[in-house]
Design a protein around this nucleic acid. Sequence first.
DNA 1: GTCTATAAATTGATAGAC
DNA 2: GTCTATCAATTTATAGAC
Lengths: 163, 163
Amino acid sequence: MEDLARAAGTHKSNFYHHFPGGKPELLRRGLARGLDALDAVFEEEPATRGPAAERLRYILRRAVEVEFDLLPEVALLLRLRGNSEIELHALERRRELTRRLTDVVVAAMNEGGIRSDLDPHLVARLLLGVETSMTEWLRRDGPADARSIADAMLTLAFDGLNP
Amino acid sequence: MEDLARAAGTHKSNFYHHFPGGKPELLRRGLARGLDALDAVFEEEPATRGPAAERLRYILRRAVEVEFDLLPEVALLLRLRGNSEIELHALERRRELTRRLTDVVVAAMNEGGIRSDLDPHLVARLLLGVETSMTEWLRRDGPADARSIADAMLTLAFDGLNP
DNA sequence: GTCTATAAATTGATAGAC
DNA sequence: GTCTATCAATTTATAGAC
């Protein structure tokens, strides 16, 4: 909290004065921002219509963009342990995200848009794992932009490494 | 430390009595175990000879097995922040692992074993990201074993989702 | 609104009895 | 070797002056 107040150019006491709720509320809001942004992707028009395989591609691409925009918040989602009510609630929301992604994977399999010989829940977890693990090395000022990273990620996920 | 001592069926003081170095040494050893195990995979015979694409498949498969065997230790590698000398050293070793994996990816590309239109360093990061993110949901007593998870992961990475 | 000072709780670690 | 008691540092949070 000392470091945060310093970064904001003030003191801890002033920070608490202007920000009721303290550390737990800070965590709650950060997690909510990341989760809301990822939830919102599923509500975007291209994520709700058309072939499920295309919706899946869209969602994965937009998720990379969200990570670029909300890097600290999404990074929090990678580090949840469930050590408090706030973390438990965020974990449940993260699981709900996995379920929504799984639903799209299942739909794409049923439509024949993607291969159907893999466990859809496992596929969703692996895809979400690639996404969230990016927060470890993504930098908004890094050499690659969101689009090129999403391109590579989608090529890897859909076309595979085989030549 | 209280929780750890309790889990070991004793008290903090007794824990410190039998384990010089305290918390930092505990972290150092945990990280070293995970890193040593992953390093060792690269030294195994199938990882050192034959087509690079096959070596890559072998390394990724063995990494899943290592995660099953050393779940808590490998999970630590996902949460490094560099807040101490110990973490900085572990981060450097984790980067070295990424470099070794990148080398195999580059070799596979040069041999024509995998597609070469992607940035090899990015590919290595994405693959390592899938691996490390598994520690979030892998359970040794879970429904799937290491082999079937590795199978699915390799199918996804090499053949892709396209039908 | 912003500061200094300090309370209150947690926790990494040790002393010392037995 | 194992325990109780406690220290000491850290850190979350507040009181109260200005």
